[in-house]
Amino acid sequence: MPAIQVENLSKIYPVAVKEPGLAGTLNHFFRRTYRSVAAVQSVSFEIGAGEVVGFLGANGAGKTTTLKMLTGLIHPSEGKIRVAGHVPFCRENAFLRKITLVMGQKQQLIWDLPALDSLRINAAVYGISDQTFRQRVGELSEMLSLQEKLTQPVRKLSLGERMKAELLAALLHQPEVLFLDEPTLGLDVNAQVSVREFLKEYNQRYKATVLLTSHYMADITALCQRVLMIHAGKLIYDGSLDGLLDRFAPCREVTVELAQGLSSSQLAVYGDLGNVDGRIAHFIVPQEKLTQMIARILADLEVVDLTVTDPPIEEVIGRVFRAGAI
């Protein structure tokens, strides 16, 4: 049985509308009007137990609203959801024990106390015995390299340490299904890497199902074989990461090292120019024009080295949204 089943899921919010200015303010006070916003529209998908799936979409696409419905925080307007065999919005204790939600921009730890105090509350709430508590905290804090930090007040921790402590708190009850909403938001590169590695290890060790949203494509490429893409509340893609690139942006990145540096305007005539770093220039080239473009560059310029790779996924997705390809 899939760990997550979603069928025709929709969420429509009423949003108050206010015109600017004094007249708008008075009108808003005496005669409030609302419009309906369809945050999620007829979304359907299934995720198997143990799968790690990336959930992509621009800001306001409906990712977080979907996660909130999957965790039972908000009621769907329409559709059916089953997570770990439960209907989320019934909020049965058995369901709540099987899931967790980590929100990169929110924290559950008590700010002024050591993280260990918040962990003790979670242990009591989930009915975790002292022995199991010590064992799990030891194991998870070792995986997260947090051992020394748990007795310091949360406010004294760095952002990365705090995020790791949040992860520890969220995973203390060993949930089967993890919903991660931007878990590496704002972290430096090292902290991002260690959180990613931890999540990978956690998934492998406990066979947990993970649905992950992130603005950092490195999170997605490092952890997910499969991605869901949502745009304006609608699911527009469900498949492999490579398939996403082929479908929405069948292009390659060509990196050229030249014998002599050229200006951007001189290089731009050869194609869609990306970064230029001294004598090294990056181009994004449509698949069908690749041979022609490379032949032209080799004929016109003195090339030291040339490589063709898949473009960075964030670049591709950014271009897809910017170009209005969807």
Partner: peptide, 9 residues
């Protein structure tokens, strides 16, 4: 912030 509390049994 109620969300975190609602996620616990």
């Amino acid at each position: 912030k109620l969300s975190f509390r609602l996620l616990q049994p």
